[in-house]
């Protein structure tokens, strides 16, 4: 940072030129694009974006639209269930695999492979698995339980849980891998000390190990939550938002408004609401994680 060195300007030139794509992307796309959408969410844009102000009209209409309310409700149900279950399943899987088992690599490979698949593939596979005529329901009926009924994708009341099954199948491997890395990072002495004190294993996990894994949990939490808010492809592939509008989600609402309903203003307002949701989660996290470190960085 010494000023006055003759090659200072020249030396920085290459780095600055190299960083142009980053600077342009950061300012022009991320900041500029976000501001643009937020600004236009206060306009009456229909087929094309136009600057005729309508104040908060778009938001009022948004919160009076049934499809949006269903979308929010679905996201809340999916989000809470996903969050709780993916952590419970992911952690239990990691704890089981951490028992110095044989075939660890094979088991880990099998549990994680769904994560390599796209949401479209995931959605279509589970559409097939949950098909009442051929899938799980018919298998159980063939086994003799004639009245067995499990057709989440055809029952509007529980359709979102059908999507949840697919989402868990795809995403729990990721949480397992992150949790396993966290568990492996814990000093073995901790376990020895707990054993000497006669603390049962489950208590050691809950009261000692999990609190020690706080950073891993927070990273995973942010990752899972941002993934939940983006939920889109899975819905399109598995249910198309149906039956009826029973599995609509905000991301799909935005897409439908912008690109098929020619109602850009609604799309902008809805996407701004999504941004607000993410900001409410990410900003406190960023402050907690990086805010404190700035002093010695």
């Amino acid at each position: 940072m010494a000023s006055g060195r003759p090659n200072q300007l020249f030396r920085n030139k290459s780095a600055k030129i190299a960083a142009i794509p980053m600077i342009v992307t950061a300012l022009f796309v991320f900041v500029g694009g976000t501001i643009w959408t937020v600004v236009y969410s206060f306009t009456k844009s229909g087929l094309l974006p136009r600057l005729n102000w309508v104040g908060l009209d778009q938001y009022e209409r948004l919160w009076a639209t049934r499809k949006w309310l269903v979308a929010i409700e679905n996201l809340a149900i999916y989000g809470v269930c996903m969050l709780v279950l993916v952590f419970v399943i992911g952690f239990i899987l990691a704890a089981l695999i951490d028992q110095k088992i044989r075939f660890e690599n094979t088991i880990r490979t099998i549990i994680l492979y769904p994560y390599a698949l796209s949401f479209v593939v995931t959605g279509l596979v589970w559409q097939w698995m949950l098909n009442p005529e051929f899938g799980v329901q018919s298998i159980v009926r063939d086994l003799g339980w004639e009245s067995f009924s499990f057709d989440p994708l055809y029952n509007a009341d529980i359709a979102i849980y059908g999507v949840l099954i697919a989402g868990l199948w795809q995403g729990s491997g990721l949480v397992m891998v992150l949790m396993l890395a966290g568990l492996r990072g814990i000093d073995q002495e901790v376990w020895k000390a707990a054993r000497v004190d006669g603390i049962p294993a489950w208590k050691t996990y809950i009261f000692i190990v999990i609190p020690m894994m706080r950073p891993v949990f927070i990273t995973t939490l942010v990752l899972v939550v941002t993934g939940i808010v983006k939920l889109y492809d899975l819905i399109v592939a598995q249910t198309g938002g149906g039956p009826g509008i029973s599995t609509e989600v905000p991301a799909k609402y935005v897409y439908d408004m912008m690109f098929s309903a020619n109602n850009l203003g609604q799309g902008f307002a809805a996407s701004t609401m999504m941004l607000v949701t993410v900001a409410l989660i990410v900003i406190p996290w960023a402050v907690l994680e990086f805010g404190g470190k700035k002093h010695h960085g």
Binding site: T226, P250, M258, L264
Partner: peptide, 8 residues
């Protein structure tokens, strides 16, 4: 969320 940058 990508949705906010789609149209820009």
């Amino acid at each position: 969320p990508y949705q906010i940058l789609l149209y820009p």
